[in-house]
Structure formats: structure tokens, C-alpha cells
Amino acid sequence: MSKIKMPKSSPALDMTPMVDLAFLLVTFFMLTAQFRPEEAVAVDTPSSMSQSTIPTENMMTIVVDTTGKVFWDFTDKKMRVAVLEKLGERVNYVPTEEEKMKFVNAGPVGVPIQDLKALLSLETGAERKAFMASHEGIPVDSTNNQLFEWISVTRNIFWNDAGHNPVVALKADGNTNYSSVADVIRTFQAPGVMISKFKMITDLEASRM
């Protein structure tokens, strides 16, 4: 009777577009996912209302952990190698290619310069982590301020390479005594470095998320 005859649809759906989309999403997530590198130092940063973000490159981070140990970190691999070579010169240490690779992937590094060789001779990341945990971190006391050397070497190399200064960030654990952080800030302001602008890395306050 009715003029329009509904076509009998087949019960089997064509799933191809759905599969296409699903795989597209899977591929996207797999390719864009960046695994959070295992942190050599556990740092629980305090939260703040500030919404400005941090750059992902050309940034030197000075990390201070709960006990006040100081670590150095840089985002770019090429720079890390250059800094290692330069600091190695000071203690007559010429790193091998393998050791350079280890240093590049090590994340924050915090040992006195003379212990760099011992640190990089260790095979696994876990061993290096334990080594750093049992050592004192980068010394910042006024008689032996090696942090100053780390910073000035990094800035010199970066300046010669890029023509401007790297972004400096300070990442400290919320429960660190402020006096340890103040030592680092004093080093920032020391003549010869004079970093008066830097970023303090914080977590976004939960209420704003």
C-alpha cells in the first residue's frame, strides 16, 4: 500500500569507518604520548594559582629536593653533552661516548664535579639514583660553590650557541627548608651570573584544574 518501501537493511553493519577512527585515535595517542621520565629525584612542588606554563626547551632547571640537595638539569641533549665535557675538563675527566649518552638521558644530575666519573661509570639508572642518594648533591656553600660553575658553564655555552640566555627555572620541594632554596637564589644573584628573572615551578592549584 505504502508508496515508500523501506529497504531492508542488513543486520551486519559496515564497521570500517568506526575502525578507521578507532585506529586513528589509537595511533594519535600512542604517538603523542610522552612517558613521564622516571625522576631521579622525587620533588613534590608546592601549588600556586599561577597559570603561566614553562617552556619545554632551552631551559635550565635547578632542582632542590626535600633534604636540600641541589641538582642540575637541562632540556636539550646537545647542551648537556657540551656542559659535561666542559665540566669534565676541570677534573681531567674525558667522558666516553657511552658515558655521554648516559648523561644525556639521566635527567637531573646532582653530584660534586669530581664524582661525575664515578656516577657515569654505573650501568643502570637505579644504580645512579642510589649513588646520587648517597652523595651530597651539587655543593652550594660559599667556600665551594660548584653550582655557580654549573650555571656559568651552562650559560656561557648556551650564549655562544644561541646568542641569548636560557630560561632558568627553580624546582624545589614544598617541604624543603627555605634557607636551602635561598642559597640557590643567592647563587643566581652572584656577580658573574646575575640571574634576576627566573621561574619557580609549581603545580596548578587543584581548585583551578
Binding site: 643566581f188 628573572k197 619557580m200 603545580d203
Partner: peptide, 25 residues
């Protein structure tokens, strides 16, 4: 399954920062 795994395990980790300016000594 993979899609769900990646969506669920991805946390948007974006640290923020406070810009500090200290007087030049």
C-alpha cells in the same frame, strides 16, 4: 582496548610556574 588504555593512562601533566624577579644586587 588500546584506545581506552591510552586515554585513561594519559594525565595532562602541566606544571605551572611563578615568574620571580629579584632586584639586581
Amino acid at each position: 582496548l588500546l584506545l581506552t588504555f591510552f586515554i585513561l593512562t594519559t594525565t595532562m601533566y602541566k606544571p605551572s610556574s611563578l615568574q620571580m624577579t629579584y632586584p639586581v644586587p
